[in-house]
Amino acid sequence: MFFETRSLRKWFGGLKAVDGVSFHVKPGEICSVIGPNGAGKTTLFNLITGYIKPDEGEVYFKGDNITARSPVYITRKGIAKSFQIVNIFPRLTAYENIMVAMLSQKRKSFKIFQSAKSLFRDECYAILESIGLGEHALTSAGQLPHGNQKRLEVGIAMTMKPSLLVLDEPTAGMAIEEKAGVLSTIKNMIRDQDCTILLIEHDMNVIFGISETIWVMYNGKMITSGSVGDIKNNEEVRKIYLGEKE
């Protein structure tokens, strides 16, 4: 199995944020996790990517048990994450943000007797162009508008050349035109880099537009999964998330 979790559980005090979640992702697919606020989606993603440690359960990636491993290890294994709240290097320029990630991905971050800016220039610029920030390469990341910061966020994750790209609300706070841009970038990534996408989104148009498999989470549990059509027609999902049909 490419990626799966087995009975993941995480408590915060008395609150069961993730309560026995077992799900899997097939290679090469775009898999979405949806659910109302407080369902535990972000906590689940944090457990998967090593940001927090699960209380019970296991996570397997390409046959390896990556449960409770550090984010450094998990990223090196091939899972890259983009954050729900923009988490970039604010005083570095957009180019430098990508450059730092690239240097780490190429395992050059300890090199001292080389000039950082002369390395991998073409590749960094290619990534900036693919996320639509080619013109803003020399702008401080902190001064970019929110939509561009989100693109940069995804771009940093993409630079790590992951096999599984975990995106936590990649289009949150963006205008419709910007969302289309990010989505086409994601689709290009799958085509060019043979990457699998796992994402959380609240915009149903985005979810139904690009997902191949949708998992629905509620109160810390996975209640169902299926294709776009299955989920749209599922009564239980409608009741808890999409609202009653009028």
Binding site: T49, P90, A116
Partner: peptide
């Protein structure tokens, strides 16, 4: 000057800016 402009120097700057993001970029 060489150290500061090297990949190591830029990685240190990234750590200054956002150590959490660094761990998710596989930087120890």
């Amino acid at each position: 000057w060489i150290i500061i402009n090297s990949p190591f120097g830029w990685t240190m700057r990234a750590i200054r800016e956002n150590p959490v993001r660094c761990t998710f970029t596989s930087i120890s």
